[in-house]
Amino acid sequence: MARYLIKRVLYMILTLFIVATVTFFLMKLMPGSPYANEDKLTTQQIRIMNVQYGLNKPLFQQYLIYLLGVTHGDFGVSFQYSNQPVASLIGARLGASVQLGLQALIVGVILGVIVGAIAAMKQGTWADSTSTVVAIIGKSVPNFVLAVLLQYYIGLKLGWFPIAGWGTWSQTILPTIALAVGPLAETARFVRTSMVDTLSSDYIELGKAKGLSRMEVVRKHAMRNSMIPLVTLIGPYAVALMTGSMVVENIFNIPGIGEQFVKSILTNDYPTIMGVTMVYSIGLVVILLITDVVYGLLDPRIRLAGSEAA
């Protein structure tokens, strides 16, 4: 197991290095300068600014300078927010996105498992069809449409929750719901299918024959085995949710990272683009690793590659 982990971590570092390199050169292919007031600067003035920021140096030299900075934990200074170090900019923004993403993930997955399990246990009844309809709606209505509807009806008309903003927990409720519905729908369908399969297995019949109650059979045997495929689903969902949704963040005035990333690309804010890309990539590779490890823990039949040799 230890050797397996070390190998995986080394691969992770290699992956990140490749991501950084490819992003750096792709980003430099984008036309235009990183200056906010570019509309009004003459070519001569832009040249003077480029010297100040070292953007007149050969591309490969800029790349080496960047890599050297990163190994020292220096991601550079943002162009959009003058003088703000990228690291602190991302730090301040990531928190809101991660909190919201986690809340949406927890709510979505837990409710999704419950809805899916009920649907599977009551196969063919009204509960099953209702859950199917809910899942289809949840999957097909984009989260920003839902966000706008929630904000208008629940926030403004009913006044139950704050319309927008960030700071109190109640302000996170509407965006959490908007973001949770997608994963909820998908989890519900997934769990239902997987559980219908499990419930018809022989060992479930055996459990029933042993005299276990229906609840016990479901809790002890069916649930755990139906959850395994879900792990594959949760990993990428976690990354997608925690890296923030630009539209939902904009609608609810949440100072998150999602919009920051899009804006940094649109404004050629090179250091921020690199910083956010690296944070996203690290998040993704770490979660993929965790997913693989959890897989093994949930299902002893799944052996981690290389662990047999250990």
Binding site: Y152, I163, A164, G165, F252, N253
Partner: peptide, 18 residues
Amino acid sequence: YSVNKTPATSLNLYQAGK
């Protein structure tokens, strides 16, 4: 002062008296 990037949101906040 607050930043409202979506005009629909700030209109809702206006109507709610915020």
